[in-house]
Design a protein around this nucleic acid. Structure first.
Lengths: 129, 129
DNA sequence: CGATTATATTCGAGCATTCGAATGTTCCTT
DNA sequence: AAGGAACATTCGAATGCTCGAATATAATCG
């Protein structure tokens, strides 16, 4: 019975889920930059960068400070962004489980549940096993 | 000059970016489950769950072991998934920076760059400041 | 075998995202 | 004030995503 607010979490993740936006965040992770700088570093047109920055701003991942005609964008939740970037580039080996291991896992899980929550019997199934 | 493969990273994140898929991953984080179990825990129709599981499988976040007529789904990169779930629910306070702080940051960044990379002068700008 | 259970796949409609082109706005600079 | 630089916004077309309904498949039961 774990419960995370999946709706807002999904929205946050969506903001991260675009190659150009990831590239922008990556650049901002090295320090604040104005739109023109970003435009050079990430290769995309100005309007497009602005559109993506707008998405990132709405998700509260970035904000900017105005400096004359320039807008210096920066990460407004730097740790979150950096950890996310680190997380997605790290690659965990993919595990493969046999039906037997799965059975064992289920057993452990049921035992743990039975111990804590009262009257939480496993769902009825038409299959024997 | 940071460089992460943004394309595959964005695809991975996209697989996470849906409320139902997050809910499924959350359930699987407590142990392996078959589709019918998931269907009860997450409230969505069977076909829809299957569709989302297919996306998660393609992203190599889950896999299954067949057990008779049942398919027991499990996380095939459990640490990645758990860390992601933890990351999105954690909420970092949003920082606000003043133009002055930004200036300071930029200064530091330029200094650091000048020290390492040769001939990396800042982009020309028409604005004085 | 025939029925039923468990799950997957296909299809189509509706909705959302993405991008470039064009245009706006604001702030310099002269 | 006029012009240009920096950036944002709007619009429309193309593409992609999401869901339910219907249908398919595979295993098990009787």
């Amino acid at each position: 019975m774990p419960t995370l607010e999946t709706q807002p979490a999904a929205e946050l993740l969506k903001a991260f889920s675009h190659p150009t936006r990831l590239a922008i965040l990556q650049e901002l992770a090295t320090g604040p930059k104005c739109v023109t700088d970003i435009e050079e570093l990430v290769s995309a047109r100005q309007a497009n960068i602005s559109q993506h920055l707008s998405v990132l701003r709405y998700a509260r991942l970035v904000d900017y400070a105005q400096d004359g005609a320039l807008r210096c964008y920066y990460l407004c939740r730097p740790k979150l962004v950096r950890d996310m970037l680190a997380l997605v580039e790290r690659d965990e080996p993919i595990v493969k489980r046999t039906p037997e291991q799965i059975q064992a896992d289920k057993q452990r899980l049921e035992k743990a549940l039975a111990q804590k929550g009262r009257a939480k019997s496993p769902a009825r199934r038409k299959v024997s096993r």
